[in-house]
């Protein structure tokens, strides 16, 4: 057991993540062709508009549809469907916690691939910086509130169904993911009413922003993701946990430095033991970049599965350095 744990601690996390992400992407975007169906309560952007290839549907789509039911239905029999749907979503979610974002979400993976292209081209990354970061952190919660309230308003008769599934309409996943199965149908603006025009137009615009933004800024979109906000609100019972032992932390800032989401607390917070914040994607790069044994670790159902070690750190840093024959 100890032997195998040692081996895991020395893992090349970047490569491991790449293969997990690629596998998950292929399964989720093309699995439908193999009649794979994981249901429609997935805690990731496995887009339902990718009708042919999808192997499961992002929970936000059915959630918004269910909430838009007339209130008389919603507060009686349809409420049961809503609750069971949420329960299924919760069960999926608690297995990996936000690890769904860092390892499985196709939209997250796409951003990492754009990052990889930028790296290949030798272009520097951009950062939000602390001030912008603080200014942006509430956006995802507002989006989450809107995506719940607007459908409720439709059900209550305040708005027309043109505003249905509002978040899906502006989500870059709807525009981009179907393209991977050769379906350009979502690449349009629906001018049939003011609502649809605004939403689908916004969707097109945001999709463009998504591609440009995540090319220059690592995980550009995740800062605004309402799914990420929802995750954070229900993260307490999750099995996969990111733990920090403040006493062992030297605040060297390595974890903050490599964090795609620019989460400062990972380095500076020495009080909290459960260090996953609302923006975290559990990509675990921080653990891989930590040279302080045991300061950061990953637990699954309270079992330590991966932790910071000097050995692992050294191996990853020596490997991560450019391989151009400049070994000392």
């Amino acid at each position: 057991m100890i032997r195998s744990a040692r081996w895991v601690d020395r893992i090349d996390l970047q490569r491991f993540r790449f293969w997990v992400q690629l596998t998950a992407f292929v399964l989720l975007v093309y699995g439908g062709y193999l009649a794979l169906d994981l249901g429609s309560q997935l805690p990731i952007f496995s887009c339902g508009y990718n009708r042919e290839g999808r192997a499961g549907v992002c929970y936000l789509l059915p959630l918004q549809h269910q909430l838009a039911r007339p209130w008389t239905q919603l507060f009686s029999f349809a409420g049961i469907g809503l609750l069971t749907g949420f329960a299924t979503f919760l069960l999926w979610f608690i297995v990996l916690n936000k690890g769904w974002c860092g390892f499985i979400c196709p939209l997250g993976t796409l951003q990492d691939w754009l990052t990889a292209i930028r790296k290949r081209l030798g272009i520097r990354y951009s950062l939000y910086g602390e001030r912008t970061f603080n200014r942006l952190s509430w956006v995802k919660f507002v989006l989450l509130a809107l995506l719940l309230l607007i459908p409720l308003g439709i059900g209550g008769g305040f708005w027309s169904h043109d505003w249905g599934a509002p978040f899906c309409q502006i989500c870059p996943g709807r525009v981009i993911l179907p393209l991977f199965t050769g379906d350009p149908e979502q690449l349009t603006v629906d001018f049939s009413s003011v609502g649809t025009t605004l939403l689908t137009g916004g969707g097109m615009f945001i999709a463009g922003l998504f591609i440009a933004g995540s090319f220059f800024k690592k995980r550009f979109f995740c800062f605004f993701c309402p799914m990420s906000a929802l995750h954070y609100l229900i993260a307490k019972p999750a099995l996969l946990k990111l733990k920090k032992e403040g006493a062992k932390c030297t605040k060297c800032g390595n974890c903050f430095n490599v964090c795609d989401m620019e989460i400062r607390a990972i380095a500076d917070d020495i009080e909290r033991t459960e260090i996953m914040t609302d923006d975290c994607t559990l990509c675990l790069k921080c653990v891989a970049a930590c040279p302080e044994p045991g300061a950061l670790k990953v637990e699954f159902a309270r079992i330590n599965i991966f932790e910071a070690t000097e050995d692992g750190f050294l191996k990853r840093m020596n490997q991560g350095a450019p391989r151009d024959g400049s070994k000392p």
Binding site: C252, N257, P291, F313, M317, G320
Partner: peptide
């Protein structure tokens, strides 16, 4: 000598 730096992207600026 104790603290070790970590780099995410191995470009001069970073």
């Amino acid at each position: 000598l104790y603290d070790l730096p970590a780099v995410d992207e191995w470009r001069v600026n970073h």
